[in-house]
Simulated assay, not measured.
Amino acid sequence: MRLTSVANAPVSFGVFELSDAPPPLTAARMVGAISDAGYEGIDLGPIGYLGTKDDLAERLGGLLLAGGWADLRYSDAAEFEQGLAALDATLDVFDAAPAAPAHLAPRPTLGCSGSPARFARPGGNAPGLEASEWAGYASRVQEAAGRCRDRGYEPAFHHHLGTYVETPEDVERLLELTDVQLCLDTGHLLLAGGDPVTALRDWSGRVGHVHIKDGDRAILAQALADGVDLRELMGRGGFAPLGEGELDLPGVVRTLDEIGYQGWVIIEQDTLPGRRSVERNIADQAANREKLRELGL
């Protein structure tokens, strides 16, 4: 039995939220494109896009659910408490996912709502948490992890540009203060000054989920020079198709094998609605899957 499976995610097609505007493509078309490209799973995306707990399994069309994003404001105790209902709603949908082997069970992806200063200057170019704030932040991450575990799911925390856990040093601090597993995202780490291959080795005992995306530091540098924020960085192609940025993709795949990683590898290529055509996004994700297949994944 192969112990690593490959999924994709709605963000690769410009689907982030349902409240701003209609999605650039229907869920049925996206599921079909992902399945046709040879992926085995899919991330949940915004609640409701892939259906509800009543019809999720049918609408996945044979794909497994790999994970799903739960955004919480760990830096603010009151707002964190208010956001827990959204985490519970995500887990309710997870309960309806098709049965999967234990190592491919869907993982709640714990995301941080972010830092306005870092969102404006992504890549470790703005101050993060004060030393005195880390204990509270970490305790709330631990509380969210416990809430997932109480429901039978093992979560993974996603470090992310524009948030309080952005740089390799931030990740190290979070790992020190919690027992939560890490969703290692190669693109976000690369653009925050990290080396994904080194990180996979150094944090191998804590890596429970992997997002593979490429990154282009030249586009980041120009975005910073122009004074534009993380959203515009994504719109400019800061997260490139695999092989078009600076990610050592063969090194990442080789290291996943070396550390004995088991679970989901989710290809993501964060893009904004309207910046690329639906047809180009579909073609990019088929090509991304083929690049991993050529590397034996």
Rank of each mutant, 00 (worst) to 15 (best):
A33H: 02
P127K: 12
R2Q: 13
A240S: 15
G296V: 13
I34A: 15
E17G: 06
L184D: 06
A138N: 06
P155W: 06
A286T: 14
L292G: 12
I219L: 12
D71A: 03
R231V: 10
R2A: 14
P116A: 13
V165D: 13
D88Y: 02
G32E: 14
V15S: 04
R280G: 00
I219W: 05
C112S: 09
G62M: 08
G296H: 11
L272G: 01
A144Q: 07
V180T: 10
D150G: 08
A96G: 01
A33N: 03
R206H: 12
G227K: 09
E40Q: 15
A126E: 06
E40I: 02
L184W: 06
W134E: 08
A96T: 01
F119C: 03
N288P: 02
L18M: 10
S12E: 04
D76V: 04
G51V: 02
L189Q: 13
T198A: 15
T271Y: 00
K53R: 13
L177D: 03
S12Q: 04
A27R: 02
H211R: 09
G194K: 13
Q82K: 14
D229K: 04
P127R: 14
G237D: 06
R275D: 09
Q181I: 01
G235S: 03
P273A: 07
D214E: 10
S113I: 01
G243N: 12
W203C: 13
L44F: 03
T26D: 12
K53V: 03
G237F: 05
R140W: 09
A102T: 13
S139Y: 01
G260V: 11
A27M: 08
P106F: 04
T167Y: 08
D257W: 05
G68Y: 07
R149L: 10
L200G: 10
E172W: 05
G48Q: 11
N281C: 11
P10L: 00
A21W: 01
R293Y: 09
A287N: 15
D150L: 11
Q269E: 12
R276S: 04
D71K: 04
A37P: 02
A138E: 03
L242Q: 09
L84V: 08
C148Q: 02
K213G: 03
L247D: 08
N8W: 00
P241K: 14
R275I: 10
G245C: 13
Y153Q: 12
P127A: 11
M30D: 00
L233I: 08
D216T: 11
D179S: 05
